[in-house]
């Protein structure tokens, strides 16, 4: 399978509300964070994942929804939410990094002016 390829497994006799997504080339990194995001969705009855075998690099990601909602929807929502969280973390991190740099520069400037000889002739 190609990296990142997704396939769906659906047990016989069930509707689209209980689906196992097979995510190739993924592990706990995406599995656990996506599970956490999907579980926040009140429409989701069950969400869990497992690594099929240590020597296979794929995970089975199971979603069961309450009622008739197709499981793809919370899956998509979970991915979008996780993207949103990442974007927020990235913006916050880069903003505070910029602030920290500016503050450091200011301190350096002050230290330089204090240490310079022109103040004490």
């Amino acid at each position: 399978a190609e990296p990142g390829e997704r396939s769906e497994v659906q047990a016989d006799g069930t509707d689209g509300s209980c689906v196992t997504f097979v995510l190739h080339d993924e592990d706990h990194t995406l599995g656990n964070s996506l599970r956490y995001m999907v579980m926040k969705n009140p429409d989701v009855e069950f969400c869990g994942y497992c690594i099929t075998h240590p020597s296979e690099s794929k995970i089975n990601f199971r979603i069961q929804t309450r009622g008739a909602l197709p499981a793809v929807e919370p899956f998509r929502k979970g991915l979008n939410d996780l993207m949103g969280v990442c974007q927020h973390v990235l913006n916050t991190f880069e903003k505070s990094m910029k602030e920290y740099r500016a503050q450091r520069e200011e301190e350096m400037q002050v230290a330089f002016e204090d240490g310079s000889p022109h103040g004490c002739v």
Binding site: G4, L23, L30, S33, L34, L79, M83, C86, Q87, L90
Partner: peptide, 10 residues
Amino acid sequence: ILMGKCQRFL
């Protein structure tokens, strides 16, 4: 990279 993973599956 985590965003990229999400985008890939989307």
